[in-house]
Design a binder for these strands. Structure first.
Length: 473
DNA sequence: ATGTGC
């Protein structure tokens, strides 16, 4: 693909072939070879062919090839345009929540960290296909969950109302309709609420090792040396089934509206069509489910800490700093226009003062949460006014550099163990985690710096992992 | 990502 440098760390993907608009890709010189190393630019060009797409389609510095839109892609569409399940992703509202504590990380030795990991694992099922431990309650409130999101589980006793004001969209996307969700998805979803999943999903005990902006960090409740907990999970089999159902269903739907599909992965329907409205309503169910999932896991983590530490919750802390979606399509106002912004492996990052910030973060901009790999740092960022050019979006992580199978082929046990250093992890079998090895990911520092150097985002704090809980059989 | 290949 033809790519033109248009500034420091910025590249234009000019209109070529059937592209309706151009693309804009952020990459440092070192990341550029990764960007060119797979089909992600081709996939971005395909997205630029869809009806109603708004200039530009974007590639974040963590971009890599995915199903339909590349992971690390942003596609905004006007009201006359299309909605695409493949441009949201398989794991609808895969996202990250950060919890703060009142505790110094340095007072946690390895045996105590191990105890905490064991207790968290006892309360939060991890691994593919696992069923939740609160099935009695969650089956009963399942319908409320898909319509009300995190609020439904707070009402059921998981967490407190203050948590809700620190979740993107207050933990609930309007417009959900369970009638648009298949029985299969409902079955899988009602069993899996309150579970972590596998792959890149994790619960991490972290230490804030650097504060870059003390004033904003204080507003976020963060300080150097602090123990934090990060949760990365999504809508489990529920969102996966919804994505599968609609990306298949929209393949025959698209031509009925005269849409030429550039790829099956970008199957889509007009937003204002029966098929498009159905997907949006089903997607909103999964978005709300994922917010509720992270809310239940938060309550479980609080319980684990109280049990292990023998302290009162108010002395531990574990308040929500923020909760962001990484895979979502949302109606937002940009430049006076109402757009459906598809973010797939991208994080909304609003600047200080933006009216769409939650009231508690109106003055600072909300925290944008960006996890690294299991052996490297995670970041708390905020957006700047310049991020208007990316529809107020930043990267969502480090981004893969090796596919899961390539990681299994090329990374040795010794290399993996060396890269983890002193960091504790729950998986005993190297084969179970090799696809998540730090070597399979880009350098998070390079990825974040790419956007910071442009001025699209600012660093607020950096956390280093102390103990990582991953999906386990 | 995923009751992990159609």
């Amino acid at each position: 693909m033809k790519l033109e440098q248009v500034g420091f760390n910025r590249y234009r993907l000019p209109r070529q072939g059937k592209m309706r608009v151009s693309g804009l890709v952020y990459a440092s010189p070192a990341l550029l070879e990764h960007v060119r190393g797979d089909n992600s630019l081709q996939q971005l060009a395909h997205a630029a062919q869809l009806p109603g797409v708004v200039e530009p389609v974007l590639g974040m510095p963590d971009i890599h090839e995915g199903f339909g839109l590349p992971i690390g892609g942003v596609m905004a569409v006007s009201e006359e345009g299309v909605i695409s399940a493949g441009a949201v992703g398989m794991d609808i509202n895969c996202g990250v929540r950060l919890l703060r504590t009142e505790l110094s990380a340095d007072s946690f030795d390895r045996p105590l960290l191990r105890k905490l990991m064991t207790e968290v694992e006892a309360l939060v099922p991890t691994g593919v296909g696992k069923k939740g431990l609160h099935r009695g309650i969650t089956a009963r409130i399942f319908e409320e969950v898909v319509y009300q999101g995190a609020t439904a589980v707070v009402k059921a006793g998981f967490g407190c109302p203050e948590d809700i004001e620190r979740i993107e969209e207050n933990g609930c996307l309007p417009g959900a309709d369970l009638a648009e969700v298949s029985r299969e998805a409902i079955k899988r979803g009602s069993e899996q609420l309150g579970t972590l999943g596998g792959g890149n999903h994790f619960i991490e005990l972290q230490r804030v090792d650097k504060v870059f902006d003390p004033e904003v960090a204080e507003r976020f409740g963060l300080f150097e040396g602090q123990l934090t907990v990060m949760i990365h999970t999504g809508s489990r089999g529920f969102g996966h089934q919804i994505c599968t159902d609609y990306s298949k269903g929209h393949i025959p739907a698209a031509p009925r509206y005269g849409i030429e599909l550039p790829s099956k992965g970008l199957a889509c329907a007009p937003i204002d069509s029966a098929e498009g409205r159905s997907y949006y309503a089903a997607m909103a169910c999964a978005v709300n489910y994922a917010f509720a999932n992270r809310q239940i896991i938060t309550a479980d983590i609080r319980q684990a800490f109280v049990q292990v530490l023998g302290l009162r919750l108010e002395d531990i802390g574990l308040q929500v700093v923020y909760d962001v979606a990484h895979n979502i399509a949302k109606w937002e106002e940009h430049g006076g226009r109402r757009l459906l912004v598809h973010r797939k492996g991208a994080t909304r990052a609003l600047p200080p003062g933006h009216p769409a910030n939650p009231p508690v973060y109106r003055g600072t901009g909300h925290p944008a949460l960006v996890p690294g790999s299991m052996g490297t740092a995670s970041y708390v960022l905020v957006g700047t006014d310049l991020a208007a050019e990316s529809f107020f979006s930043v990267n969502h992580g480090a981004g893969r550099t090796l596919s899961r199978s390539a990681a299994e082929r090329s990374i040795t046990k010794e290399e993996f163990e060396a890269s983890m250093g002193e960091i504790l992890y729950n998986t005993r079998n190297f084969r179970d985690v090799v696809d998540e090895a730090p070597q399979a990911y880009k350098d998070i520092e390079e990825v974040v710096d790419t956007l910071v150097e442009i001025g699209l985002t600012r660093k607020i704090a950096r956390m280093m992992p102390m103990a990582v809980i991953k999906g386990k059989d």
